[in-house]
Design a binder for these strands. Structure first.
Length: 211
DNA sequence: TGAATGATCACG
DNA sequence: GTGATCATTCAT
């Protein structure tokens, strides 16, 4: 698959295969850190999207008060309890979808929330999907969990899907991030669990949801 | 700073 | 069944 579109960063010549499923069957904090710099690829309705993750948050299982899974499995959060590599998409605030990928083995109830990314492929369509009034700064195209899902056309239909498919996958972009290039902070927008530094981001990236 | 807007869940 | 809450975003 050749990539000819203009982009903000050098694109790989090919979009690689999905990350191996064992990648997601590991410690959630480790997976979260290692997802930075990876690519999220989605193809649907004859549109292709690729973006590079720069900000994520980890949500653990029964030990994490801020996690949707803290009080056990419910109809909404059951995808979180699926095997690592399964998408968990939920609807919130009456408007927005958020995309997570479940981690660890089936039954644990942990996941990583995708909070911000660099658009690499499908920019025009992303702009269109972000139905804003005025012109949009490209840096703000994917700079938030609900912005990201809106731009990529992600909704509840993706909930429970495996993210190792040709049309929905995490791929290696060949980016190398040193440990010192990764920052941590408390998670954003939660009312419990602020004490944990479970937000991971690429330091000094202009593409984040917050400075 | 607050309005928009609806699914979800704990409680009874 | 009911009501408070919500891993947000945008415009004022």
């Amino acid at each position: 698959m050749k990539l000819r579109e203009k982009s903000f960063l050098p694109l790989p010549n090919k979009i690689g295969p999905p990350l191996d499923s064992p990648f997601f069957l590991r410690n959630t904090l480790k997976v979260a850190r290692e997802l930075l710099g990876k690519g999220l690829f989605i193809q649907h309705s004859s549109k292709r999207f690729l973006c590079e993750l720069v900000e994520v948050e980890a949500y653990l299982g029964a030990c994490d008060e801020a996690s949707h899974s803290f009080r056990g499995m419910t109809p909404r959060n059951q995808s979180m309890f699926e095997e690592g590599g399964t998408a968990y998409v939920y609807f919130t605030y009456g408007f927005h979808f958020c995309l997570n990928v479940a981690t660890e083995k089936k039954g644990v109830g942990a996941a990583v929330l995708f909070r911000a990314a660099i658009p690499l492929l499908g920019l025009e369509e992303m702009q269109k999907n972000r139905k804003l009034r005025g012109p949009l700064d490209p840096k703000k195209l994917l700079s938030g969990p609900a912005k990201l899902t809106q731009a990529l056309g992600i909704n509840k239909a993706f909930n429970g899907q495996k993210m190792n498919q040709a049309q929905f996958k995490i791929v290696d972009l060949g980016r190398v991030l040193s440990k010192s290039a990764i920052g941590t902070s408390s998670r954003i927008g939660i009312s419990k669990g602020q004490e944990h530094l479970y937000r991971f981001f690429v330091k000094n990236s202009p593409w984040l949801s917050r400075k």
